[in-house]
Design a protein around this nucleic acid. Structure first.
Length: 426
DNA sequence: TCTGGGGTCCTAGGACCC
DNA sequence: TCTGGGGTCCTAGGACCC
């Protein structure tokens, strides 16, 4: 935490309805219609075009609840196509680096930029240029907020989404009192449902009231997290730009099942697939892990008996071997599995993740030839799957049928990342 | 019938040590 | 038998984000 650098100028670039915008890029028909994109299992709405928002479709609503509305209003519905979004995201981010050297890629559709040292005359003109360039070169519309701190750029970006230019600047000429008095405290970045409730008890309902509240009281109520938000509202930088994202600290693979699982063997196979997938992510990042956690649970939306449990296993030395990770995950599952429940979801989390080069062998480590053999197997597995497509080769534990698995049925082709699915031009 | 998945950061409290 | 206080490290769980 630091407040040593006053007068910073930061920007937040936020892609508008990102997943929907990606779909529209390759589907002309979708440009003229309301669009929604669904979550992994076609479960919930995770992205909505402006027209879809206007129809009253809210973020996170289960698809089955709005299916009729979509048909009635001609809403185009897509399953999520993550490779497409990831590719377009990296194009957006690459373009941003042309405008400023200091860019923090915050999420798939957002980036912070440090504009402090840039020689532009008008922040607003700069933002408009970035916006036009992105639209021309990548085809993705964005909104941009410019202010002194991250929290204020988040506020500015929300306001930018509401005006026509898609740009909003908060600077020394801004009437902050007027602006923040109309900004509900629960809309602030970092203030979720629980924190908003606590603040309401204190009579704090808008951002201006939070800015002016007693600092000690805010820290006591919302810990240092709340204190930082308060300082940032005042224009004091407390949340630094993270320019070089450290390596990942954990890797998760989990998914709900299409149909409930009653049988132990099905759960084992589903989990083994997650273990395999997580280990592949680990190798892709050139990392190893020292532990894993397995979790299973029933459907919380049903009235049937509920069960949730998790179990942790550790490795004596770091590993990214699919065999090691599958084996330990099966051991963990054995410790928590109970018969007679209707399971809906399982998953695995790899933790204590470190770069492969930092690998230190344990005194009790399996001998080197064993380790080398496992590395060879993993390498071969990755090569084959890269060449012939995912799941070309797997482990016996992962099974061959995957009746519990569900794939989006409304998925668009991987236009930009798979040669076989390039868009056709007539 | 159908309700996402993948992350980070912070804190309280227990274990352990001196 | 009486029975301290301070420090560190680790972990589970909460809260939040996109």
């Amino acid at each position: 935490m630091s407040s040593t650098l006053p007068n910073k100028t930061l920007a937040l670039v936020d892609c508008d309805s990102f997943y929907c915008s990606c779909e529209r890029l390759f589907c002309l028909k979708a440009r003229k219609k309301p669009v929604v994109v669904l979550s992994n299992n076609d479960g919930c709405v995770v992205s909505r075009s402006r027209e879809a928002k206007e129809l009253g479709i809210v973020m996170g609503v289960p698809y089955f609840k709005i299916k009729d509305l979509c048909q009635e209003k001609g809403v185009m519905v897509f399953s999520s196509n993550y490779p497409l979004y990831a590719d377009l995201s990296s194009r957006v981010m690459r373009t941003l680096y042309h405008f400023a050297p200091e860019v923090e890629v915050y999420s798939i559709d957002e980036a912070f930029m440090d504009l402090s040292s840039l020689p532009f005359a008008s922040a607003e003109d700069f933002a408009i240029e970035v916006r036009q360039t992105l639209y021309k070169e990548v085809g993705i519309p964005i909104s941009m907020g410019i202010a002194a701190t991250k929290v204020l750029t988040k506020v500015a970006t929300k306001l930018a989404k509401k005006n026509k230019r898609g740009v909003f600047v908060i600077d020394e000429h801004t009437d902050k009192e007027k602006l923040l008095t109309h900004f509900p405290v629960e809309d602030l970045w970092g203030i979720g449902h629980q924190s908003a409730l606590k603040l309401k008890i204190l009579g704090i309902r808008n951002a201006w009231q939070l800015l002016n509240a007693n600092e000690a009281l805010i820290q006591k109520t919302l810990t240092v997290v709340g204190k930082r938000i308060q300082q940032e509202l005042k224009g004091v930088n407390c949340i630094e730009l993270d320019l070089e994202k450290e390596h990942k600290q954990q890797i998760i693979s989990s998914k709900s099942f299409e149909r409930s699982i009653w049988v132990r063997n099905d759960l084992q196979e589903a989990l083994a697939n997650h273990a395999l997938r997580a280990s592949a992510k680990l190798r892709q990042e050139e990392q190893v892990c020292f532990g894993l956690q397995v979790f299973i649970h029933t459907n919380r939306f049903k009235e049937s008996p509920q069960y949730y449990n998790s179990a942790t296993e550790y490795f004596l030395s770091g590993t990214n071997s699919p065999q090691d990770i599958i084996q330990k995950s099966m051991q963990a599952l054995e410790r928590i599995y109970k018969d007679g429940f209707e399971y809906k979801k399982c998953g695995i989390m790899l933790f204590d993740v470190r770069p492969h080069c930092q690998l230190q062998l344990s005194l009790f480590d399996q001998d080197h030839s064993e380790r080398a053999k496992k590395e060879k197997i993993a390498q071969t597995l990755d090569q084959i799957n890269q060449k012939f497509g995912p799941h070309s080769i797997s482990f016996f534990a992962c099974g061959t049928k995957t009746p519990w698995d569900k794939n989006g049925s409304k998925k668009s082709p991987s236009f930009t990342t798979n040669w076989k699915e390039l868009p056709k031009v007539y």
